[in-house]
């Protein structure tokens, strides 16, 4: 469903992604790990369509479309969802109102009927149960005054309501306590299906104990430098990223 081919991206004139390849098929969960500053969030931002990123070469196809040609809202309607590493606080915009506006805008863009507030609330309640998110968060401003963990759970809650075809989670597990991590993992697992793909950006093996990925990739210096099965995460945890670099040097020799 997602095919990234030789992607080069610069930010403020500086090359960040330098020839990244990745293919995600429906039903697959891909974990992306890598050192700080490697370009993981840059990849996520480019997929979601944030401004300020210049694609200098390569392509990204999503289903049959050129993803990079779409506006952010068109990507969302096409089924791409990004759980932000740093969710944005928007005081004064009610969380439920926001989510319904988003949900209905996506449906409208796809030519599907919109839900009225009663229908929508029913849907929201169902999803709340899965995530055991406190209901009062729904009535507050979007992420406004939320704790770090609450913001991350709110991202997963939005994902659960919007049911995207492809979900990119940028360090959603960072800063979570053990219970919240488990809930986030349950949120992801409950959405796993043969039609849906996931890209999990993470620094920790911990999340991958709960959400077992099909593939683990190492992103370093703007490229995928190593790919493997779920076991690769454990190796990385044991040896660090230098180990990947060393093996590459060893392999080339």
């Amino acid at each position: 469903m997602l095919t990234i081919d030789d992607l080069h991206v610069s930010v403020a004139g500086k090359a960040i992604l330098k020839g990244l390849d990745l293919v995600v098929q429906p039903g697959e969960v891909h974990a992306i790990m890598g050192p700080n500053g490697a370009g993981k969030s840059t990849l996520a931002a480019v997929l979601a369509g944030r401004e300020g990123y210049e694609v200098t070469a390569g392509s990204v196809r999503f289903h049959d479309a050129d993803l990079l040609a779409l506006a952010p809202e068109e990507r969302a309607a096409a089924g791409v969802f990004l759980a932000f590493q740093y969710p944005v606080e928007i005081p004064g915009v009610n969380n439920t109102y926001f989510l319904r506006a988003a949900y209905n805008a996506q449906r409208k863009a796809r030519g599907e009927p919109e839900l009225d507030s009663v229908q929508f609330l029913r849907r929201v309640r169902e999803k709340l149960k899965i995530l055991s998110l406190p209901e009062d968060l729904l009535h507050r401003g979007v992420n406004s005054g939320f704790s770090g963990g609450e913001k991350k759970r709110n991202e997963i809650f939005q994902m659960a309501v919007l049911e995207p075809a492809l979900a990119v989670l940028d360090e959603t597990d960072s800063g979570l306590d053990i219970d919240a991590l488990r809930q986030v993992a349950e949120g992801v697992n409950s959405l796993r299906s043969a039609q849906r793909g996931f890209v999990l950006i993470t620094h920790y093996q911990r999340l991958l104990d709960y959400v077992v990925p099909d593939f683990v990739h190492v992103l370093a210096d703007g490229r995928i430098v190593e790919s493997g099965g779920p076991g690769l995460a454990g190796e990385l945890e044991a040896h660090g990223y230098a180990w990947v670099a060393d093996r590459k040097v060893g392999g080339a020799a």
Binding site: A48, G49, R50, E51, A71, P72, E73, R75, A76, A77, F81, L82, F84, P87, V88, I90, F98, L99, A101, A102, Y103, A105, Q106, A109, V142, Q158, L162
Partner: peptide, 10 residues
């Protein structure tokens, strides 16, 4: 961008 990334037109 956050709002647009959720599908809300600009």
């Amino acid at each position: 961008f956050y709002l647009r990334s959720r599908g809300i037109p600009a």
